Simulated scan of single mutants.
Amino acid sequence: MLLLIPGPVQTRPEVRAAMAQDIAPWDRDFQSVYARVRERVVGIAHGTPGVHATLPIQGAGHFVTEAVLRTFVPAGSKVLIPMNGAYAQRMARLAREAGREVVPVALPDTRGATAEDILPVLESDPSIGTVAFVYNETGSGIVNDAEGIGAAVRKAGRRMVLDAVSAFGALPFRMDEHPECDALVFTSGKCLEGMPGMGFAVARIDRAEACAGNAGSWSFDLSDVLAHARRSGWGSIRFTPPVQAIAAFDVALDLYEAEGGQAARLARYRANTDALYDGIVALGLRPYLAREHQGPVIVTVHQPADPRFDLMTFVEALKRRGVLISNFYNTVAPTMRIGAIGAITPEDMRRAVQAIGAALQDVLPKAA
């Protein structure tokens, strides 16, 4: 089965094989693996040892995103969030339910947010302390301008947290060039092509120390994650972790480095996206985004206007042809979500396009 969703992604056999073992999380052999993973992640983020640290949280991306919001945004404080997609809306809900005041910036879900969208709001309201946003919006496929927004936040003297869950490892971002960024977050099952189960924050150590006591939650307190590592060692973890997923992630990082790291991974994903986008257009379907706004992670496609079309029926027809895509959408207009990341190639994408065309014929047969 060819898995084309924006995460958890299709993985390599070597990664899956690393799951086939029983592991004790306190065992010294595993602790060395876990400590190594944390160190490698800081390197991928271009963090500075002693300045930045990897602070993991078990679970889905929403868990580590909530942990970052709770830790680095004080209760009752304002956080600006550009609202141009479903995952921005989820981030806003996490912030509100944690008792933070969200300042939304309404934007269309068909283009990325820029510094020009953010800076006027910051200038008009000096009480906004933090800007939080999603780097890659997997609702539509747009990419927000992390570099430009970061520069604007730095110029305004505010703080930033970056949800890079579906971007880290492919889209570039250097923590050493963004002192305004308290933390970026990602998960094991996206662009680094590991198994799902673990969230990571690459965070400034000084800010994690200064924000101790903000979280209002033991489970979601990244300052406590840092304090635990200092007490018990970087190979230790506070609560029972998904040890097999961490072991597999270590292997995935080996493969990532062997491929050539971020630049090579991004090049392959862009080639995947181009093959998919061009193929969709050739089928007569209409991509949701204009090409200049199309990111390299997921292509969303307008559903056919034919009243006979049903997304769930189409997804099942496509699955019978060996390709699995999301069976839901979260754009303003009805769409189909087709991922372009994971252990897949442009040739896989061209094969997927053929299957999509055939599945459309299955569910929308032409009159004889």
Rank of each mutant, 00 (worst) to 15 (best):
M160N: 08
I128E: 01
A98S: 04
H62L: 01
D254R: 06
G59S: 06
R159V: 10
V323D: 00
V121I: 14
D176H: 10
R238T: 08
K155R: 15
R231Q: 15
A215Y: 00
A60S: 04
Y269C: 09
D224E: 15
L2C: 04
M1Y: 00
F168M: 05
L119W: 09
W234H: 12
M160K: 00
G47Q: 06
V185C: 01
G284V: 00
A18V: 07
A247R: 13
F168W: 12
V153F: 10
V105E: 12
P307W: 10
S124V: 13
A263K: 13
A355H: 03
A333F: 13
K155L: 08
D125R: 07
P13N: 15
V299F: 09
T114H: 02
R207P: 11
D182H: 07
G76C: 09
T54Q: 14
N327K: 15
R230A: 06
I280T: 05
E137A: 14
L253A: 11
K190H: 00
A164I: 00
T138Q: 14
D348V: 01
E257Q: 13
N330A: 11
V243N: 05
P196L: 04
G148P: 03
A75T: 14
M1F: 01
G169V: 09
E209Q: 07
G295K: 09
Y269Q: 15
I57G: 03
A227F: 04
G61V: 03
P179I: 06
V161K: 05
V315S: 14
P104S: 09
Y256D: 04
R12N: 15
D348A: 05
V33R: 09
T65Y: 10
E97R: 06
P334Q: 00
P104E: 11
A305H: 02
M175N: 01
A258L: 12
V281D: 02
M1N: 06
G216Y: 07
A290W: 12
S232G: 10
